[in-house]
């Protein structure tokens, strides 16, 4: 079953649970605090995760906008534009997967800002050539890989851990390509992302 499928099933179970004997209060009465803790572990902290995953959606919105702005900047060679558009597609897939999970958990997905707002926040006006654009993209991709790895402990379920870990892998892939394009040296130590 997919991550979204499991979350949908979990949500239906939560909704049904309000009309059955086994409410959280009932579990507590029957099994005490340990039973409630086990129930919480099973269902996950949906409210907390909606907020954290919405921040991730906001991150993906910014990444999508960054590649759109870069593609239209006139600073990139056509082959580089093509690769950037492919990377943007990866971020759109991330956004869509995160939106599915947030929606399944009963949350409202974070909305995107305008490209002009992202351009201002990223100081796109300071980009003067292809190297500048690639350097910014590398910074964002490296940061995104680290961000996803760093929020894994804050998510409640293994399915969500796996989803963001997969996205961290994509970001690390992007960072490797961009670092190679810029001629950056290969890091000498392992465990180069996360902490």
């Amino acid at each position: 079953m997919s991550v979204v499928g499991k979350d949908l099933q979990m949500r239906r179970q939560l909704v049904r649970g309000s009309a059955t004997v086994l409410t959280a209060a009932g579990i507590t009465a029957l099994l005490g605090a340990r039973g409630a803790a086990l129930a919480q572990k099973r269902t996950g902290n949906a409210g907390q995760d909606v907020g954290v995953l919405n921040a991730a959606i906001a991150l993906e919105h910014e990444g999508i906008a960054a590649y759109t702005i870069a593609a239209g900047s006139g600073l990139l060679q056509p082959a580089v534009v093509k690769i950037g558009v492919t990377f943007r597609g990866h971020h759109q897939r991330h956004r869509d997967e995160l939106i599915k999970v947030v929606t399944a958990l009963g949350g409202k997905p974070a909305a995107a800002k305008s490209d002009a707002e992202y351009a201002t926040a990223l100081n796109a006006a300071a980009l003067k050539n292809q190297t500048d654009v690639l350097r910014l993209a590398l910074k964002l991709e490296r940061g995104a890989a680290n961000a996803y790895l760093g929020l894994i402990p804050s998510l409640a379920t293994a399915d969500r851990h796996q989803l963001v870990a997969r996205m961290a892998g994509d970001e690390a892939f992007h960072a490797a390509i961009l670092g190679n394009a810029l001629g950056d040296p290969i890091p000498t130590d392992g465990l180069m992302f996360g902490a």
């Binding site: 921040a55 906001a58 991150l59 910014e62 201002t120 926040a121 990223l122 100081n123 910074k139 964002l140 490296r142 940061g143 995104a144 680290n146 961000a147 760093g150 902490a195």
Partner: peptide, 17 residues
């Protein structure tokens, strides 16, 4: 800060954070 926080934060611009 650049590598861990920089995906969402900047010193002078509001972004994800």
């Amino acid at each position: 800060y650049q590598s861990r926080c920089g995906a969402c934060h900047s010193l002078d611009a509001n972004r994800v954070g």
